[in-house]
Every structure is written in structure tokens, then in C-alpha cells.
């Protein structure tokens, strides 16, 4: 049944525009099961969630090398730029990020005693003010507007991508933590909505996230290997984009590929989906900024 739909989709996509963008992987694997176990890369899920694997595993060796080498990683100039912004006072408050949080890699966490290490692995969290999930991007802007009295970063701007990368990078190697699947969890409502989104058919091609990323993960679709669509490496530098991009940009790309109208950056729909995806990828190691095809 599913095969048929995918085939139909492939016919529709004669130009191959969609599928190229649907995959994070390279061309190294032709197997129809998840790629072989490799515990050294940290690209596998943990015992809690053993079937999860990061798109890192299906990237070709040269891409992986670029991902791993902090110098060669083309997402790093953005992170470096953000490291400069971290120390720069902004807005009417005259405060910089460092004024409250200390140095970004400060284990004590500066005056607020909130070290950045580990923070990136726990988002999205519940924003007590709005009662909705909040991700790293929106939290950064909340700080900028609420604490620094500065203008918020544009969602997909270099500054925002770099700052998100900088914060997330502090948690590199730590497992993604999400308990949103627990009915008692404060994010469970968002998780539920995200799950519905994930399994909801949409767009002209009438496909849901799960048709590629659950039923056919690691399968070849035209020349591309489908990933599980995990969020552990975002913001991710994609060669296609020639710059880093946020998770929501990726969502929008996927939505466009199946001919459905994308939602806005930072929209409730995507925040719910992000919450659900973090849960699907719990236990995977944070690896930002990742490099993908």
C-alpha cells in the first residue's frame, strides 16, 4: 500500500525536486533496514529508545569528516560570530548574554547559575508565560526582548542560527532529554498535537511525516537515503542551503515538498512537532551544528 503511494509520488516528481530535499543522507547505504550499529559516533539511540539513529549515519564519509572536524565544519563561522555577540552588550539594558550567564562554556553558569552546558539537550521546554512549548530560538529572543531590551533576532538570520548553534553546541555529546510522551508531563498536550501532526496526511501528495521518516527511513528514494528526520543536529549546515538552517526551515522544506502550505517560523504547529520530534529522538546525542547534504 505504502510502496504504491511512494511510487505514485515518484512519478509525480519527475523533476526530482522533492526527494533530493527530503533526505539528509548520502549514498552509502542501499539496505532497507537501519544502518549498521556504530557506537563510536553516538549516532544511535540509547536503551530507552534503541531504534533511533541520527542522519549522520547515512551521510557519506566526507560529509561525516566535515561534521566531525570543528575547524572544517562550515557551520562553525556562524557559531564563532555568535560567540562574539555573546559578549557584546545589547539593547537598552546594556547587558550582554555573558552578564547573566557568564562565559558560554562556564560550568558555573555565571551570575544566574545556569550553565549553558546541557541546556540545548532539554529544549523544547514549557514556557510558563504562554503555556506553550518554547525552543532555543524563541528562548534566545525572549531573553533579548525581556532581559536585554534589545530587538529580537530574525528567526532565520545568521545571528539567530549562530546563537542557537552556540547554545546547542555546549550540549554536544549529551543525550537529548524528553519526557513529553509521559501523560503526566507538562508538555504532553503539545506532544499529542505534534504526534497528530506527524501522522496527519497533508498536501497534494497526501503524505504524512511518517510515510518517509518512519515507514521508509533508510530506504532509498530515487538517489537519496531517507533519514528518520531526527532533530538532534539542528541547526544544521546543509550543502543545498549553503548555510546553516533551523529545524523549522527543514519542516517548511518538507511541507513544501509534499505540496502542502508550510507554517510559519516559530509557529505553534511546528513547536508542537518539535516537541514530539525531540521525544522521538530522545537519547540521541546532540551534535550541533551538524553538516548534511
Amino acid at each position: 500500500m505504502m510502496k504504491k503511494q511512494l511510487n505514485a509520488a515518484i512519478v509525480l516528481l519527475g523533476a526530482g525536486l522533492l526527494l533530493a530535499a527530503c533526505s539528509d543522507g548520502g549514498m552509502t547505504t542501499t539496505s532497507s533496514s537501519a544502518p549498521a550499529d556504530d557506537t563510536t559516533t553516538g549516532a544511535n539511540g540509547t536503551s530507552d529508545n534503541p531504534d533511533a539513529w541520527s542522519g549522520y549515519k547515512t551521510a557519506i564519509a566526507t560529509t561525516q569528516a566535515m561534521n566531525d572536524d570543528e575547524f572544517e565544519n562550515p557551520g562553525m563561522p556562524y557559531v564563532d560570530q555568535a560567540a562574539g555577540i555573546w559578549d557584546e552588550p545589547a539593547g537598552a539594558s546594556g547587558l550582554s548574554c555573558a552578564s547573566c550567564h557568564g562565559a558560554v562554556d562556564d560550568a558555573a553558569g555565571g551570575a544566574l547559575r545556569i550553565p549553558m552546558k546541557g541546556v540545548g539537550a532539554t529544549f523544547p521546554r514549557l514556557d510558563a508565560d504562554s503555556g506553550k512549548p518554547i525552543n532555543v530560538e524563541l528562548q534566545i529572543n525572549k531573553c533579548r526582548v525581556g532581559q536585554q531590551y534589545a530587538s529580537p533576532f530574525k528567526y532565520e538570520s545568521d545571528e539567530m542560527l549562530g546563537m542557537t548553534g552556540l547554545v546547542r553546541k555546549q550540549s554536544n555529546g549529551m543525550p537529548v532529554i524528553s519526557t513529553a510522551g509521559d501523560p503526566e508531563d507538562e508538555l504532553h498536550t503539545a506532544w499529542q498535537a505534534g504526534k497528530e501532526f506527524y501522522y496527519q496526511r497533508r498536501g497534494k501528495l497526501d503524505m504524512a511525516c511518517k510515510h518517509c521518516h518512519e515507514d521508509n527511513a533508510a530506504n532509498i528514494i530515487r538517489a537519496e537515503t531517507l533519514s528518520q528526520g531526527q532533530s538532534n543536529g539542528f541547526p544544521t549546515y546543509r550543502f543545498k542551503w549553503q548555510k546553516p538552517g533551523s529545524l523549522h526551515r527543514r519542516f517548511r522544506g518538507c511541507n513544501k515538498n509534499i505540496r502542502s502550505t508550510p507554517y510559519g517560523y516559530g509557529s505553534d504547529e511546528y513547536l508542537n512537532l518539535e516537541t514530539y520530534l525531540a521525544w522521538r529522538g530522545r537519547g540521541l546525542q546532540v551534535a550541533a551544528p551538524a553538516v548534511r547534504k
Binding site: 562553525m76 556562524y78 560570530q81
Partner: peptide, 29 residues
């Protein structure tokens, strides 16, 4: 705050060593 070019040069080297110098610069090209 612009993006700075990144270079990797060994701080110290022995005379006669073959050294690898890496550069990465941010540009839209």
C-alpha cells in the same frame, strides 16, 4: 559583528616539518 575568517596554523613546529594550514572563510559566493 561580522563572521571572522578561520585559520588553523600550528603554533609550534620543528624545523623541516611539513605543516598543514587550513583556512575557512564565510562568503556567499
Amino acid at each position: 559583528m561580522a563572521k571572522k575568517p578561520r585559520v588553523k596554523v600550528p603554533k609550534t613546529a620543528a624545523k623541516g616539518d611539513m605543516i598543514n594550514i587550513k583556512t575557512l572563510v564565510s562568503h556567499k559566493m
